[in-house]
Computed example of a mutant assay.
Amino acid sequence: MKARYAVGRSTAGRSGTGRSGTGRWSVLVGALLVALVSAFLPASAAAGTDDGRTPVDHWGVITRNTVGSPVAALRNGPYGSFGVAGTSARPPYGRGSLGIEVADNSTTLSPPSEKVDFGNEVDFYGKSLLGLRRVGFHVFQTGENVTYGGPTNMPNIRLEIDPNVNSADDYSTLVWVPAASPVTNAWSPFIDATTTGYWYLTGATGTTTGCTQAARCTFAALKAAFTTRNARPTVLTVAVGKGRDFMWIGAVDGLRLNDYVYDFEPDGVKTLHKR
């Protein structure tokens, strides 16, 4: 939507700017700042509330992307493990986190493993994927999870997108697979998805861009795969998830998207503005 500004003649005593053009410059600078901040800004942060009083929280289990009977629930802690002290012994933000539990062999489907996405289908809809420049999270990884599936048995960040690569391709899931957590049985430091792990796209978009689960992409290569094709992908949903592969029981906190951190707490998801 194009913003319209009524800029008339400036006279001393009416606007306080005389004929210097200061008022016009302020309007232009303000419009530029709004445009920069709104790139990948969640709609709830822009709108503030649903009814002017109640904070918006559109986060929860994405039911259509859930297989089996996994758990993705806001919880206290985890604190520890036992004997662990300092900042790694507690959630990085607040007192809670998103607890995730998936099984590897509990369904009659093929594969028999479970899958869950805990995310937001409202606030990021229509945002530019190419506007995403910071992304990642903190994870509570256990030694048992490593035993179940190896050191890279980790939860993912998933973004359902409209790739806009061509007229026939209007859906794909963009998946970040983290590298191994630097610690186990404790909270990790921030794991930066722009510099570690790998990304891939599902379906025809993966084949078209060359970013598939078999042909992994860095974050920079992923974005270049769209820009070189003059594609303008938009976001449909954002989620943290796990499956379908190995059993995993752990937690995630501090999901970062650009200048916002999503703090998973027992009473809801809090949006923190960070630089």
Results as ranks from 00 to 15, higher is better:
96 G>C: 05
75 R>A: 15
103 A>V: 00
75 R>W: 12
109 L>P: 00
78 P>F: 03
111 P>A: 07
108 T>W: 14
87 T>R: 15
81 S>I: 01
106 S>L: 11
96 G>D: 02
92 P>D: 05
111 P>I: 04
84 V>H: 07
105 N>Q: 13
104 D>Y: 11
107 T>M: 06
79 Y>M: 06
105 N>P: 08
77 G>N: 07
115 K>A: 14
93 Y>L: 14
102 V>N: 03
69 S>E: 10
88 S>T: 10
78 P>L: 04
75 R>Y: 09
69 S>H: 10
115 K>D: 00
81 S>K: 08
113 S>Q: 12
96 G>Q: 05
113 S>W: 08
74 L>N: 08
92 P>S: 11
111 P>G: 06
93 Y>F: 15
97 S>F: 06
76 N>D: 14
98 L>V: 04
93 Y>I: 08
99 G>S: 11
113 S>A: 15
105 N>A: 15
78 P>Q: 03
77 G>Q: 06
92 P>L: 08
107 T>D: 04
77 G>C: 08
82 F>L: 12
83 G>Q: 02
103 A>F: 10
110 S>C: 09
115 K>L: 14
95 R>C: 06
105 N>Y: 14
108 T>K: 13
108 T>P: 09
69 S>C: 05
92 P>E: 06
71 V>D: 00
115 K>E: 09
78 P>W: 01
97 S>R: 07
87 T>H: 13
108 T>N: 15
70 P>E: 07
98 L>G: 00
77 G>P: 02
103 A>P: 00
102 V>K: 04
97 S>L: 01
105 N>C: 11
111 P>Q: 07
110 S>F: 14
75 R>P: 00
99 G>H: 13
105 N>T: 05
106 S>P: 08
88 S>M: 13
79 Y>Q: 08
105 N>M: 12
87 T>F: 14
114 E>Y: 05
81 S>D: 07
71 V>M: 07
69 S>R: 12
69 S>A: 13
74 L>P: 03
98 L>P: 02
107 T>P: 02
90 R>I: 05
73 A>I: 09
107 T>Q: 01
74 L>F: 09
100 I>S: 02
79 Y>W: 09
81 S>Q: 09
105 N>V: 04
87 T>M: 12
102 V>Y: 03
85 A>L: 13
99 G>Q: 09
88 S>C: 10
83 G>E: 02
114 E>I: 01
95 R>F: 09
109 L>S: 13
79 Y>F: 14
114 E>H: 04
113 S>C: 15
81 S>G: 06
94 G>A: 06
70 P>I: 05
93 Y>S: 04
85 A>N: 11
100 I>C: 06
79 Y>G: 01
96 G>M: 05
97 S>T: 07
74 L>Q: 07
81 S>N: 11
94 G>E: 05
69 S>T: 12
113 S>L: 10
114 E>Q: 10
89 A>D: 02
91 P>Y: 05
99 G>D: 08
86 G>Y: 00
79 Y>K: 10
95 R>P: 03
97 S>K: 03
104 D>P: 07
103 A>Q: 13
102 V>F: 02
107 T>G: 04
114 E>G: 03
94 G>T: 01
106 S>I: 00
89 A>G: 03
109 L>F: 11
94 G>R: 02
86 G>P: 02
104 D>G: 15
87 T>W: 13
100 I>D: 06
101 E>H: 14
80 G>M: 05
